[in-house]
């Protein structure tokens, strides 16, 4: 494998690891965060940053080919729809009166609660 090939391979691996990390963290947040809003925040990170960087890594791995355009189209779709879905969810929850979680770590409510 040439040096360019090695660098490309390494860059793709790094991007995909970043994606996998964000998926892990996002899933952890989905399970462990205290209320609906922060969980939504965690879940949408999976799709945007996680899937985004994995797809980017695939593009790098593929090189200059027509397939890359397809992958980029998928990435654009994900980047467009996932935040929209998160926005719609959070907006609907807020408008129907769900109050955000405002407790302090040490216990007790914060001032604006």
């Amino acid at each position: 494998m040439s040096i360019v090939g090695t660098v490309r391979y390494a860059a793709a691996a790094v991007l995909m690891c970043v994606g996998a990390f964000f998926f892990f963290v996002g899933t952890l947040g989905l399970i462990r965060f205290p209320d609906f809003y922060s969980r939504t925040h965690g879940a949408t990170k999976c799709d945007t940053v996680g899937a985004g960087s994995i797809l980017l890594g695939l593009c790098v791995l593929r090189g200059l080919e027509a397939d890359v355009l397809k992958i980029l189209a998928i990435a654009a779709m994900v980047l467009l729809t996932s935040p929209t879905a998160g926005h719609a969810l959070a907006r609907a929850a807020y408008r129907t009166g769900l109050r955000p979680w405002t407790h302090r770590i040490g216990g007790g409510e914060s001032d604006d609660a």
Binding site: L80, T84, H87, R95
Partner: peptide
């Protein structure tokens, strides 16, 4: 009921696809 401009715009954009 007020509509979300963001959702509306994205749905319009993606509907043909």
């Amino acid at each position: 009921v007020p509509e979300s401009l963001v959702v509306r715009y994205v749905v319009r954009l993606l509907a043909p696809f």
